[in-house]
Design a protein around this nucleic acid. Sequence first.
DNA 1: TAAATCGGAGTGAATGTTCATTCCGGTATG
DNA 2: CATACCGGAATGAACATTCACTCCGATTTA
Lengths: 191, 191
Amino acid sequence: MKNTDKHDEIVRASLELIAEKGFHGVPMSMIAKKAGVGAGTIYRYFNSKDSLITELHQELEEKINLYLYQGYKIDRPLKDRFLYLIRKLMQYFIAHPLHFRYMEQYFNSPYGISLHRDRVLGKPGRHDILMDIFVEGIDKKILKDFPKAALFSIAFGPLISLMRDHILGFVNLDENLIQQATEACWDGIKR
Amino acid sequence: MKNTDKHDEIVRASLELIAEKGFHGVPMSMIAKKAGVGAGTIYRYFNSKDSLITELHQELEEKINLYLYQGYKIDRPLKDRFLYLIRKLMQYFIAHPLHFRYMEQYFNSPYGISLHRDRVLGKPGRHDILMDIFVEGIDKKILKDFPKAALFSIAFGPLISLMRDHILGFVNLDENLIQQATEACWDGIKR
DNA sequence: TAAATCGGAGTGAATGTTCATTCCGGTATG
DNA sequence: CATACCGGAATGAACATTCACTCCGATTTA
């Protein structure tokens, strides 16, 4: 492979623009301009706008997973592992607000919904450390015996909502708030 | 008085289509077809697609508020009032899934974000029974002393997330789940 | 009362705009 | 000079919106 500068520029520009304006608010021409390339050049690196959107999502998800699993200790108690994960997730998104906005957009789109379906209904082949925790927790009677989707909602609903308000400037997610919120999430799913 | 049949048909068609496909997935021509009117007719009732979207939202919000405040007892204890509200909200959305999907779309759009800003940052002139409960609860030291936006997120994040999964068919929101979820919401915000 | 006229709701083809995508001439690279 | 790579004008499809026209019930006129 050769010069990936342009590829990266396109990705960066897309991320910034889409996170701010949404998928439909950003024409390819705008991405091209911001990336400093010709409109046609984008199509040398991506098949379509759709695949640009999807690939960008995958790229972000990989980055996030990598970050989450750094320092993850499989042998700690369930609660510790859970709190560790959501804490890191919040850290990540506070440090990368554009990533959050992008993922949120994606999640609230047809792409994201089918992805979510695969996750919470447990499509075979998908491996998800969080879902493993849920399964283990239900099994060991530590967590409520709810469908995985419900545990996910109860645990992540408030976090996502808080993150958004933080990034939009409606609240300031300080250490105290994070502490309380993560504890509340745990209390919501524990038996 | 004039005949409002067409107006109502347009509103009904818009609600169904937009709830299912999203704002951008629904051309005006599609709405016209489903409503059984000419494309131009829509513009006799609404100035633009934008105002159709906004007016539909307002209409729904009024309906929902009306329903919520039916039977609301201002003299009950704070906790009871809070639980009453979120319970009724869930009932409403379970009974009207299209309304939920529409409101969710709206909420996750630029329109909704500025509306949310007005709400949680307390734009003067807006009167919101829920925010009153938060203010009173903080004042009486019943609720955590967090910004209103944070209380809102912690209380409603899980509900919205659960509602969505219910409507998409990922979980079944039965009485038990509702009970547990609403209690968890309260526990999340109480001191 | 019957005919003529009016007003305004309703229509949908036409318009103009905004894109995603393509294409081809130019430019760097080897 | 040949090859790979780029740019951005050109293209065509999808849409929101407009407008010249039709239709029909109400109102006026004869």
